[in-house]
Amino acid sequence: MIKVEHLTKTFGEIKAVRDVSFQVGTGEIFAFLGPNGAGKTTTIKMLTTLLRPTSGTIEIDGLDPAHQQNEVRKRFGIVFQDPSLDDELTAFENLDLHGALYHVPRKVRTERGESLLKLFELWDRRNDPVKQFSGGMRRRLEIARGLLHTPKVIFLDEPTLGLDPQTRNQLWAQVKKLNEEERVTVFLTTHYMDEADRVAHRVAIIDHGTIVAQGTPAELKQQTNSETLEQAFLALTGSSIRDEGADSNRDLRNMAAMWRGRK
């Protein structure tokens, strides 16, 4: 479903992604793990037409995101690392708008919207504006939205960031259920290794823009003689803390969040 070869992205001096290659099969749950600033989000942005690769090739369902943008866009759903809902609209309106943008016929939009809202336990709140939602509810709504147009692949960039253990477990259970029922391919990132261990069929670990290991969670543990995936992860990526480059958008969001908080 996803085929990446020698993918590289540089921002001026910074080499965010260097010569990355991997494949994800149809119906697979693939976890892309790595420390902060490793290049996970940058890779996802290239896979999802938001950034052009500096070099290398990408295939999504046999198509090239750089040249067949709209065809590729129809085939994937995405939950971004940062929030991306319209706060002023209700949960249902957010879904409906998404469906319209993805050419989903109104009838299907309503039906599938209903079943997804029920699955993610938001049906009772469908007519409430998103600004009244908690972090967990927003995240669930974003996942429901990403799945509304029945994509072949869904990208989940740290979907469980900031959620409590109950919500996290439930969310992965729901994602797994959809993966089994609809055979949707899942490409996820997370900093919670136990989640990746439980959910993912296969894992790739990226550090400083390069993939340092790939395989099933069991293989990685065996390879590093570790009990848990977290130990394997630390063995592969070392224990030093990563310098994070300044990200102007992130600063902006923090400012915006502060400003909203104060109001």
Binding site: T48, T49, L50, Q69, N70, E71, R73, K74, I78, F80, D82, P83, S84, L85, D86, D87, H98, L101, Y102, H103, R145, N249, L252, R253, A256
Partner: peptide, 16 residues
């Protein structure tokens, strides 16, 4: 829209 992220949702939609 850029700050609160909705812009990204528009930009990945299969729309001119």
């Amino acid at each position: 829209d850029r700050q609160f992220g909705f812009l990204k949702e528009m930009l990945v939609a299969p729309q001119p």
